[in-house]
Design a binder for these strands. Structure first.
Length: 745
DNA sequence: GTAGGGTTAG
C-alpha cells in the first residue's frame, strides 16, 4: 500500500501511524517511513509522530518536527506543547524551554493545565525554582500533577524545608508525592524521617521501596538495603530492573555473591535481562565478589554491551589478577575512553607492574587521549615506587598546564611522590597549595618530613593538623611514632603512644607496637623493648622481633641477639636479612664457626642474600649497580673516581668500618670489598655524570650500611656535593659532612 | 497527553 504513492486518506494514515508508534517494539524508522508517505499530515498526525520520537529518546526530532509544523502552517494545539516542552526538559535545556514557553503565551495555550504542568516541570527539572514557583503560584487551576512537579523541583535542588511546606499543604498526597519526599529526605541524610514517612504510607509501590533501598545503599548501609529488599519481596512486590541495580550494588559492596545470584535469578524470571545497566550491575557484582567466570559468561553471551560493560569486564579481570586477559580485552576494544585507559593503567600499578604502568601511560598520550586526575594518581604512584622523579615532575607540570584540579587524592599522591623522591620543598609547596586536605594528606606530610629527617617539623605538623580540625587516625600515629623513631625521641614516643588510646580513641595495632619496640631498642633500651613485646595484646610479628634483633646487633648485645635471632629463624627460616644479622652478630665477636653454621643453614634452606643494589638516574636513564659490579660501560672512569674518593677520604681521617663485612677474610680485602659497595659505585658514577649543583640522588634496595653512611658524609664535604640516598627505610641527605638522619637509622 | 525510584566502569 505504502509503495504505491502518497497516502491521501488522512484518517486511515493516522490510524496506521498511531498503531505503529504505540507499540514500542516497532522500530521508529518504520513509523518514520509511514509519516513520510502521508500527504499533508495534520496536527494530530504530527503530534503522534512527536510523541513517538520522545518515547524513543529522540527529543531533537520532536523539536525538529515542531519547527517544520510551524513552517508548513500545520495546526498547533494543546497536545503539541506538552510534547515540545518535554523534549526540551529531556534535553535539560532551559533556554529552549523558555523559547517554547513564549510560543505558548503567544498562541494562547497558557491556561491549559497539561501545558502548564509540563512547563512547571521543565523549570523544576532545570532547577529554575523561581520561574517554576511563579507559574505554580499564578495558576488558577492546580491538580496533583502541578503539586508533584513543583515538589520535584525542591527535591531536585535539595531544599527540604520548602519541599516540606509544599508536601504538607498538598490537598491530595498520592504515592508519587510521598516517594519524592522519601528520596529527598534520604539524600539529605535524614534517614529516620525518610523511614517514618515510608512506614506511614498506606499504599507503597515498587518505586517507594526502591527509593528507600537506594537511600540505604547510598549511605553505605548495605545490610539494611538488603533487608528492606527481602521485605519488599515478601510483600509481593515484583522486582524490576531499577531496584535490582541498587540491590546488586549492595551485594557487591558486601561481597555476598549468593544474594547477588538470587537477585539475578529473580530478574531473569521477570524477564529483564536485556537492560544494559542491569547486565553491567551483574557483571560488576560477580567480578567484585570474585566470580569472574560468571561475569565473563554474562559478558560474552550478552547481545547489548556498552562502554561500561567492557570497562567493568576489564576491571573484573584485573581484580582477580588476570592481567593478560585484561590486557587482551583492552587491546581488542574498538573505542577506549579515559576510564578504559585508567582501569588498565591503575591495574598495572596495583599489581606492582610499575614499568608497564608508565609504558601504557605513554601509549595513552601517544594515542591522543587526555588523562584525568584519576589516571594521574596511578601514574604518579608508579613514579613514586620507581623513584622516577623526572617523570613525576613532568606529570606535575602536566597538571598545571592543563588546569587539572588538584583534589585531595591527587594532591596527596603528589606530596607522597615528592617526599619519597627526597624533594621536601616541592612536597610542601603542593601541600600548602591544596584547597581540600584529607587525613591522608596530613599523613603523607608527617610521614614524608620524618622520612626526610625533618622530625621536628614533622611533629609540628601533627599539632597543626589538629588545629586545622583533622582527626588523626591509625596511619597518623604510625607516622608520628615513626618520626620519633627516626630521632630516638623515646619520651615523646612513649607519650604519643599513650595518648593514642587515651585521647584519640585509636587502638595500637602491630605497626604501632613495632615502632615502639624499634624506638626503645634502637636507643639501647633492649630490656624494655623485650618486655613490651612480651606484654603486647597482639602476637608480635616477624618485623617486631626483627627490629629487636637489629638493635641487639647495633648495641652489641650478642646474648639477646642470639636468642632473638634463633627465634626469628624458627619463625621465618627463609628470610635472608635475619640470617645475615645473626651472622653479623657472630662475626663481630669473631665467632667464625657460628658464621659458617649459618652459611650452611642458608644454603640448606635455599636462602639467598638479596644483593645490595643502588640505582641512580642520570642523563635520562636509570643506572643500576650491584656490589662489586664491573659491568657498567664507564667502569674505568668509575674505578678512577673510586680511587680519588678513597684518597681524599683517607686524608680526612676515614677509617673503613670493616666489622660489618660478613666474610671471613683479611682486613685489606675487607676494605676493598667495602669500597665496592653498590652505594659507593653509584656515588662515584654520580660524581662523574651529574654536574653540580644538582644533588646526586641514589635509591638503595636495602638499608645503607654504616660504612657507606660514614663515607657519604665525608664525600659530601670533600667533593662539595649534596648526596641524597633513599634506602628501604628512609632518606639520608648528606651535605657538608653531615647527614639529615642525625645518626638515627 | 503532564508528576516519582537506580547504578554500573577508574
Amino acid at each position: 500500500m505504502i509503495s504505491t504513492g502518497l497516502i491521501r486518506d488522512t484518517y486511515a494514515a493516522s490510524r496506521i501511524l498511531k498503531f505503529s508508534t504505540d507499540s514500542l517494539f516497532i522500530h521508529i524508522n518504520y513509523s518514520h517511513k509511514i509519516f513520510d508517505y502521508i500527504d499533508n499530515p495534520n496536527g494530530f498526525i504530527c503530534n503522534t509522530m512527536m510523541r513517538a520520537y520522545l518515547q524513543r529518546n529522540q527529543p531533537q526530532n520532536t523539536i525538529f518536527l515542531y519547527k517544520s509544523m510551524l513552517k508548513n502552517n500545520v495546526c498547533i494545539d494543546n497536545y503539541t506543547f506538552p510534547l515540545l516542552v518535554q523534549a526540551s526538559t529531556v534535553r535539560l535545556s532551559e533556554a529552549e524551554g523558555k523559547e517554547f514557553h513564549n510560543h505558548v503565551i503567544k498562541t494562547g495555550f497558557g491556561s491549559d493545565v497539561y501545558v502548564k504542568n509540563t512547563l512547571i516541570n521543565m523549570y523544576a527539572v532545570c532547577r529554575n525554582l523561581v520561574d517554576a514557583r511563579k507559574m505554580f503560584d499564578e495558576s488558577p487551576v492546580l491538580d496533583s500533577v502541578s503539586w508533584n512537579s513543583i515538589l520535584a523541583g525542591y527535591v531536585q535542588v535539595g531544599n527540604v524545608d520548602e519541599a516540606k511546606v509544599i508536601f504538607d499543604k498538598m490537598p491530595m498526597k498520592n504515592v508519587i508525592a510521598s516517594n519524592s519526599m522519601i528520596v529527598l529526605l534520604g539524600r539529605s541524610g535524614r534517614m529516620s524521617e525518610a523511614c517514618q514517612l515510608f512506614d506511614e504510607m498506606m499504599e507503597k509501590d515498587v518505586v517507594s521501596w526502591t527509593a528507600l533501598i537506594s537511600c540505604y545503599e547510598q549511605h553505605g548501609m548495605y545490610t539494611q538495603a538488603l533487608d528492606l529488599f527481602t521485605q519488599m519481596c515478601s510483600n509481593g512486590i515484583s522486582v524490576d530492573e531499577v531496584v535490582a541495580v541498587s540491590v546488586l550494588s549492595a551485594c557487591a559492596h558486601l561481597l555476598v555473591v549468593q544474594t547477588g545470584e538470587s537477585v539475578h535469578g529473580l530478574v531473569i524470571r521477570v524477564g529483564f535481562e536485556s537492560y544494559v545497566n542491569l547486565q553491567n550491575a551483574l557483571i560488576h557484582m560477580y567480578s567484585t565478589c570474585g566470580d569472574v567466570m560468571a561475569a565473563q559468561r554474562l559478558f560474552y553471551t550478552s547481545s547489548h554491551l556498552d562502554q561500561i560493560s567492557w570497562n567493568s569486564m576489564i576491571s573484573g579481570y584485573l581484580k582477580c589478577g588476570s592481567l593478560e586477559k585484561a590486557r587482551e580485552l583492552f587491546d581488542s576494544m574498538a573505542e577506549k575512553d579515559a576510564v578504559s585507559w585508567t582501569t588498565m593503567i591503575s591495574g598495572y600499578a596495583q599489581h606492582d607492574h610499575f614499568s608497564e604502568t608508565l609504558a601504557l601511560f605513554q601509549e595513552m598520550l601517544h594515542e591522543d587521549n587526555k588523562p584525568d586526575e584519576t589516571t594521574l594518581v596511578s601514574v604518579l604512584s608508579a613514579c613514586t615506587h620507581l623513584s622516577a622523579l623526572d617523570q613525576g615532575k613532568w606529570i606535575h607540570a602536566y597538571i598545571r598546564k592543563n588546569g587539572l584540579k588538584v583534589n585531595s587524592i591527587l594532591g596527596t599522591t603528589l606530596v607522597d611522590m615528592y617526599m619519597k623522591c627526597g624533594c621536601v620543598e616541592n612536597a610542601l609547596e603542593v601541600f600548602n597549595g591544596m584547597e581540600e586536605k584529607g587525613v591522608s594528606s596530613w599523613n603523607a606530610l608527617i610521614l614524608g618530613l620524618a622520612m626526610n629527617g625533618q622530625v621536628e617539623r614533622s611533629l609540628d605538623m601533627f599539632q597543626k593538623m589538629k588545629e586545622c580540625g583533622a582527626t588523626p587516625n591509625e596511619v597518623t600515629f604510625v607516622a608520628v611514632l615513626g618520626a620519633c623513631r627516626h630521632m630516638g625521641l623515646v619520651d615523646e614516643g612513649r607519650s604519643y603512644f599513650n595518648a593514642m588510646t587515651r585521647h584519640y580513641n585509636v587502638e595500637p595495632n602491630i605497626k604501632h607496637y613495632g615502632c615502639m619496640v624499634d624506638l626503645l631498642a634502637r636507643v639501647g633500651l633492649l630490656k624494655e623493648a623485650e618486655t613490651l613485646i612480651d606484654s603486647m595484646p597482639i602476637a608480635p610479628d616477624v618485623a617486631t622481633w626483627g627490629a629487636l634483633l637489629g638493635a641487639c646487633r647495633k648495641h652489641g648485645n650478642s646474648e639477646m641477639g642470639e636468642r632473638v635471632g634463633r627465634k626469628l629463624l624458627e619463625l621465618q627460616p627463609d628470610h635472608d636479612g635475619f640470617h645475615v644479622l645473626l651472622s653479623n652478630i657472630y662475626a663481630s665477636k669473631g665467632n667464625w664457626d657460628s658464621v659458617l653454621d649459618i652459611r650452611v643453614a642458608m644454603t640448606r634452606q635455599g636462602v639467598v642474600k638479596v644483593p645490595g643494589c643502588s640505582m641512580i638516574e642520570a642523563n635520562g636513564a636509570v643506572h643500576e649497580f650491584l656490589a662489586g659490579d664491573k659491568s657498567h660501560a664507564q667502569i674505568n672512569e668509575i674505578e678512577e673516581m673510586l680511587a680519588e674518593m678513597e684518597k681524599r677520604l683517607k686524608v680526612m681521617g676515614y677509617a673503613p668500618g670493616t666489622d660489618e663485612v660478613l666474610l671471613d677474610i683479611d682486613e685489606e680485602e675487607k676494605e676493598s670489598t667495602l669500597f665496592r659497595h653498590s652505594e659507593k659505585l653509584a656515588i662515584a658514577y654520580g660524581l662523574i655524570a651529574i654536574a653540580p649543583p644538582t644533588p646526586i640522588r641514589i635509591i638503595k634496595n636495602l638499608r645503607i650500611c654504616s660504612d657507606c653512611h660514614a663515607a657519604a658524609k665525608l664525600i659530601s664535604k670533600a667533593f662539595d656535593r649534596e648526596i641524597v640516598v633513599r634506602d628501604r627505610h628512609r632518606f639520608h641527605h648528606f651535605k657538608d659532612g653531615s647527614c639529615s638522619c642525625m645518626e638515627f637509622w
